[in-house]
Nucleic acid binder design. Structure first.
Lengths: 187, 187
DNA sequence: CGATACATGTAACCGGTTACATGATTTT
DNA sequence: AAAATCATGTAACCGGTTACATGTATCG
């Protein structure tokens, strides 16, 4: 049935985790609840429907294990289709939209690349962030310098807060890029 | 009817803007579309229903102007109830939850304080951020130092990215606090 | 025997996204 | 006359939140 192209952010996170190792809904809930990966809900009302959607789209495949033991677990594994979707998500070009509005998503993407994409792909990703984010930060800086004259103090400071966040992410991307370049120079 | 306590983030933003100056839905859409305040949608499907909810809760009051001119505008004004709700939102204590998960919301709150709360209240707010955020950042730093040994490189770097964001916001809050303290010393 | 952990789900609600729908006014 | 802008809305859809519902296994 439904061949929806793009799962939600939660769906993508689940897909990546299931790819790393086959898991049940309960496993994944525990992961979210215990880990320092906040901004993900561990509520069953979010996770189980998300898993069902992924299975409807044939990105994962659930099989019930331990039927005899009266404590059955529905364990999900990624499908070839799911692997393709995951790869497409991880490898797609970074846009300005992404760096302006989806920093959480980018961080998630980065975390999911580990052990899946090679260092060259990671480098392309980080380069993409720097390429898109640097001019935006420059624009914001320009705006903070010249465009906030009519704004009240609170407004000016609020702009500075946003700017600081973006700048910090840009710096992180540059450092991470350097990190991966060092490991890559040998080709 | 419905006396819902807390409007959504969009609702709160609209409430604050309407408080600043009475506005129509169209005015507000333009504001969101043009301003550097991203992370707010200017789509009519978001704004008009949000305004209706605010009016249902008697936080704002709409009156049609220019009925004769064949181009009527529904202009909203804040009500006493709305003013109370706005004040309650702006003045409520900053929690750990807030600094961990709702940084956008805190920034919005700060921006909305301008010209509405006095500097003492702003100081309390910024102090609250520092008080709640500093220990959390310390914990995260501790975790980044000692707890990420089993994580792959990507995971470690992703944690660092989050940490950098929080640290940046904490620094901003400290600087802003200093800014307001200087202006307040004469009290 | 009661609490906690294991394990999976559903249902109502809420609010944002996207797209559609309508029609007047001003500008080119 | 066409295009852009003013101005307001609705309807379908999607997905997260909250709360509810169910039952077993294990530990103290």
């Amino acid at each position: 049935m439904s061949s929806k192209a793009t799962p939600s952010m939660l769906g993508r996170a689940l897909l990546a985790l299931i790819h790393r190792s086959p898991s049940s809904g309960y496993d994944l809930r525990k992961l979210f609840a215990e880990s320092h990966l906040h901004h993900f809900s561990s509520s069953p009302g979010a996770i189980y429907p998300a898993l069902q959607r992924l299975e409807n789209d044939a990105l994962i495949q659930g099989t019930v294990e331990q039927i005899d033991t009266l404590r059955p677990r529905r364990v999900y594994r990624i499908t070839p289709r799911g692997l393709a979707a995951l790869r497409a998500w991880l490898e797609c070009r970074v846009t300005r939209e992404d760096v302006v509005s989806n920093i959480k998503d980018l961080t998630l993407r980065f975390a999911c690349m580990g052990g899946h994409l090679d260092d060259a792909a990671t480098l392309r990703f980080l380069d993409g962030i720097v390429t898109e984010l640097a001019p935006f930060v420059a624009e914001l800086e320009e705006f903070a310098r010249t465009g906030t004259g009519d704004l009240p103090v609170h407004g000016r400071l609020a702009v500075k807060s946003g700017l600081a966040q973006y700048r910090s992410f840009l710096e992180w991307a540059r450092e991470a890029r350097n990190h991966f370049q060092e490991g890559e120079t040998g080709g």
